[in-house]
Computed example of a mutant assay.
Amino acid sequence: MNPQRSNRRQALGWLAAGAAFLGRPQLAHAAPWAPTGNITYNIGVAPGGSVDLYARGIKNALDTLKLVGGHTVLPLNKPGAAGLLVLQAMQKARGDAHNLSTFHTGSIAGQVTGVLKADLREFVPVAMMVEETTLVAVAADSPLRSATEIVDKLRQSPESLKIAVAPLRGLNLHLAIAKPLKLAGVDVSRLTVVPFRSSGESVTAVMGGHVDVVIATGPTVTPLAQSGKLRMLASCDPVRGKGPLAEVPTWRELGIAADYVSYNGVLLPPGVDAEQIRFWENALRQVAQSADWRQLVEKSGNKPIFKGYVDSHRYLQSELKDTQELVASLGAGAR
């Protein structure tokens, strides 16, 4: 995609645009933008995981709350190439805000590790909607009784347990398990990491005994734990959760200060203008405030939030830097 110099110019331009965007009176003369047709919500994963769940939850809220002028939001799953297929579709839709996609910490991790052959700084993150809890779980009948037992076993033999992640090595779920294990003295370069197309598939594999441990976000793990099919052994959050997560210890509580928090939101194509950004920021703020959306997120064990365009852009920049440092320290790139 664009060379590094172009990315630096665009980042500076985004910061300037963000300042202007906050100064709303400067745009008072511009005609408000609104959709003139149906919206395509491009989802870069297979159905069954949290990314798909939240994209469809946002789609449903936009439709139900009538926030897109009577038009329809059409979800379109395009799994493959760590999300590159979706970003290529978004590139082709340059300047057309009738296209949405997911803005996710996993894509940032993929860019840093080289799994995702794209530069997210070319796109426009317009909102962050969910703070995700990442959980370590095993099958209900697993002989592994605690996260401490997993750590002890992997210290002795890093290859001895099959650890399921989705959709690929080198993304956020891989980093979320590698970080505490590395800090606990495990040689993470020797782990047996087994990738699946979606977290739905990875939890199915652990329940079937094909892998020993799964790491996935709350929406995938929590319902299965509540039904007695999985046991949750550790949370990557800095503090213990509520509801069904109240009994799940954090890595920090287990003596391993290795928090890892992921965020999920909405991405727009390159080249959209300030009025298009404003429309979607306002619409998504209303989604974030709706009772049905908050219930969907909280039921899954995650935290509903709302951060708009400027904060989302700042997060993208800071998370790229932080993830570069984390990957360098872990040696956890894709392979």
Results as ranks from 00 to 15, higher is better:
1 M>A: 10
3 P>V: 09
4 Q>M: 07
4 Q>K: 06
5 R>I: 11
5 R>Y: 10
8 R>H: 11
9 R>S: 12
10 Q>S: 11
13 G>M: 07
14 W>H: 13
16 A>N: 05
19 A>N: 03
26 Q>K: 07
31 A>L: 14
35 P>M: 12
36 T>C: 04
37 G>N: 08
41 Y>W: 10
42 N>E: 12
45 V>P: 01
46 A>H: 10
52 D>G: 09
52 D>L: 11
53 L>P: 04
53 L>W: 14
57 G>V: 03
58 I>H: 03
60 N>C: 07
61 A>Y: 00
62 L>P: 07
67 L>Q: 01
68 V>W: 01
71 H>R: 08
74 L>T: 10
77 N>T: 15
78 K>S: 10
84 L>C: 03
85 L>F: 14
93 A>T: 01
94 R>A: 10
96 D>V: 01
96 D>Y: 07
97 A>I: 12
99 N>G: 07
100 L>A: 02
103 F>C: 04
104 H>E: 08
104 H>N: 11
105 T>A: 00
108 I>R: 03
115 V>A: 15
117 K>R: 09
118 A>G: 10
123 F>A: 05
125 P>C: 01
127 A>Y: 13
129 M>Q: 10
130 V>K: 01
140 A>S: 11
144 L>S: 06
153 K>W: 04
153 K>F: 06
156 Q>N: 09
156 Q>I: 12
157 S>V: 14
160 S>D: 08
162 K>F: 14
164 A>L: 03
169 R>K: 15
175 L>F: 06
177 I>R: 00
178 A>G: 08
178 A>V: 12
182 K>Q: 15
190 R>W: 04
191 L>V: 01
191 L>T: 01
191 L>Y: 02
194 V>A: 10
197 R>T: 15
199 S>T: 07
199 S>Y: 11
200 G>P: 05
200 G>H: 03
205 A>D: 13
206 V>H: 00
206 V>A: 00
207 M>R: 12
208 G>S: 11
208 G>V: 08
210 H>D: 15
222 T>R: 08
223 P>D: 02
224 L>W: 13
227 S>M: 05
231 R>Q: 02
233 L>M: 04
235 S>Y: 03
237 D>S: 08
237 D>T: 14
238 P>V: 14
240 R>D: 00
241 G>D: 09
242 K>P: 04
242 K>D: 15
246 A>P: 03
246 A>V: 12
248 V>W: 02
249 P>F: 01
249 P>R: 00
249 P>M: 00
251 W>E: 00
251 W>F: 02
252 R>W: 10
252 R>D: 13
254 L>M: 15
255 G>V: 06
257 A>P: 15
257 A>N: 15
257 A>M: 13
260 Y>I: 14
261 V>G: 03
262 S>Q: 10
264 N>W: 14
272 V>P: 03
274 A>N: 05
274 A>R: 06
279 F>C: 00
279 F>H: 04
281 E>N: 07
281 E>R: 03
283 A>D: 00
285 R>H: 14
286 Q>C: 05
288 A>Y: 01
289 Q>D: 14
289 Q>R: 11
292 D>I: 11
294 R>P: 10
296 L>E: 10
303 K>A: 02
305 I>R: 06
308 G>I: 05
314 R>L: 09
314 R>C: 02
315 Y>K: 06
316 L>T: 09
320 L>M: 08
321 K>H: 12
331 G>C: 12
334 A>C: 14
335 R>M: 13
